Simulated assay, not measured.
Amino acid sequence: MTAGHAVETFLEMLVAERGIAANTLQAYRRDLEDFTDFLTRRKRSADAASTGDIRDYMAGLSRAGMAASTSARRLSALRQFHKFLHAEGFREDNPCTVVDAPRRSRPLPKILSEAEVEKLLDAASALPGPEGARMLALLELLYASGLRVSELVGLPLAAVTRDTGMLIVRGKGGKERMVPLTEAAIRAVAAYREDRDAFLKEGQKSPFLFPSRGESGHLTRHRFAQLLKELAISAGIDHEKVSPHVLRHAFATHLLDHGADLRSVQQMLGHADISTTQIYTHVVEERLRRLVEQHHPLARTGRKG
């Protein structure tokens, strides 16, 4: 069977038996035609492709700079294709069974520089009235503690205690952790408390530090994210870069930049597994690498013998 005929037979099966969408069908066609072109250059047919052919094809995709996620999709198409050929008796084995999928690298988290965080804090400090006091308290708390946004907006009124300087957080799975706060965060929360009633209906009582008149009873994640993007615009920062989670990343990365140990950062972030926290060490390493490449004279000119 020629490679082209094998692909068409497989695609017909996908339409007849699985009813796949036209766009999906075209994606399969493109992926498999690229593979069959590869086989043709090797003078191979689809029913004679070996495991070595598959591995060489995948290695070629990697050398060409194809993203691991796209390569993994290609391999998935090849697996289904060869599974079909084997099931239909067109070949005696499936050469894809022992080929490992490309490892997908975990994307590095987006962060803000310390200077950008300072700009956000300055912009929040300049906001007038109760809205300004609340925004500064939210921002100082988030950057001082690295809270998840759901933890931040849902903080109980008693979570911040001035006498201890610690924040009590109930995180995932109901687990409690204590996070030390900066003096700036403690002061911002104390100032905000004086204006907190502005966010309550007359006579309303609320157990939340950041109450709201809405159904949830407290400031929502969505509303805080909106306010943060508005603040970024006023601070002259690209609002697409800014989100509550990006500030959580900034908290962790800046701590490591200044010598904090990984285990302490893990505890403050509330990560169950330290491997989750280790992604921030990669951010620091990547920043150092770029710093050397951009500013070290030998990195740019090369060393002369």
Rank of each mutant, 00 (worst) to 15 (best):
N94Y: 06
D261F: 05
L139Y: 10
E12Y: 06
F10S: 00
R104H: 06
G132P: 13
A198W: 03
I54A: 09
I54N: 11
S275I: 02
A22G: 08
E176S: 11
G171P: 04
L112W: 07
L219M: 12
L157T: 02
T70C: 08
E12M: 12
R134D: 08
L78H: 02
L219V: 09
R221K: 06
E140S: 09
T70K: 01
P180V: 00
Q278P: 08
L39C: 03
G214Q: 13
Y280I: 04
A22I: 00
H5F: 10
A252Q: 00
R263E: 03
E293H: 12
G302K: 07
A225E: 11
D56H: 08
M1R: 02
V179M: 01
P130Y: 04
P297D: 07
L227A: 07
R42Q: 15
G217Y: 02
P109L: 00
S145W: 10
G146M: 00
P130T: 00
M1N: 07
S216Q: 14
G259A: 08
G4S: 15
A184E: 14
M268S: 00
G65Q: 07
A27R: 03
H239W: 12
T51C: 07
R79C: 05
S45V: 03
Q267L: 14
A77N: 15
T2Q: 13
P156A: 05
R289Q: 14
F251S: 03
S264T: 15
G236I: 02
H249S: 10
D273R: 10
D31R: 05
E140Q: 09
L121P: 06
F35Y: 05
E286M: 07
G214C: 09
S76D: 03
S264G: 13
T24Y: 00
A188D: 11
V246D: 11
V179G: 01
I279N: 01
A260R: 07
R30W: 13
T276P: 04
G19D: 09
A115L: 09
E8K: 13
H239N: 11
E33Q: 15
Y143F: 15
S113E: 11
H282S: 13
L142T: 04
P107I: 00
S105R: 14
R18N: 12
R213C: 14
T281Y: 09
D53L: 11
N23C: 06
K119L: 15
L139I: 08
A27Q: 12
R104D: 01
L121H: 07
S264L: 10
R42I: 08
I274G: 13
P128G: 01
G129F: 05
A115W: 03
